[in-house]
């Protein structure tokens, strides 16, 4: 049981690392949104499922409620994160920021 939890947490940490590295490496604002918004969402999904499994180790009513709350956080993140990304993209488009094309220099 512990091994599954540790594997899930390590998967989530790898996704978080990818999100942060992408946030630092990609060339412009539109392409930075791809790793920042979505690899982080996937990473939090993995870590939350792992922690919810770990929390069910000693089964009781209170622990079950806490695990359900963890799953509720994940569901909320999955609904809220695309909306936040879309709001940021919309602000960029309205301000007239041009997307990066191949051959431009980094911003």
């Amino acid at each position: 049981m512990d091994i599954i939890v540790i594997l899930l947490i390590i998967c989530g940490l790898i996704f978080f690392t990818g999100g942060t590295v992408g946030l630092l490496r990609f060339p412009d604002f539109y392409s930075r949104l791809h790793p920042a918004g979505k690899l982080d969402t996937m990473g939090s999904l993995f870590i939350m499922i792992g922690l919810a499994l770990f929390n069910l180790h000693h089964f009781s009513m209170g622990n079950l409620l806490t695990s359900l709350k963890l799953i509720l956080i994940v569901v909320f993140v999955f609904m809220a994160s695309p909306t936040a990304i879309h709001a940021i993209v919309d602000a960029g488009v309205r301000a007239g920021l041009r997307p990066w094309k191949k051959g431009d220099k980094r911003r």
């Binding site: 946030l23 930075r32 920042a36 918004g37 602000a91």
Partner: peptide, 11 residues
């Protein structure tokens, strides 16, 4: 840009 800072804060 300002929106880059916003992405960083969100992360």
């Amino acid at each position: 840009t300002v929106l880059d800072r916003l992405i960083g804060t969100n992360a």
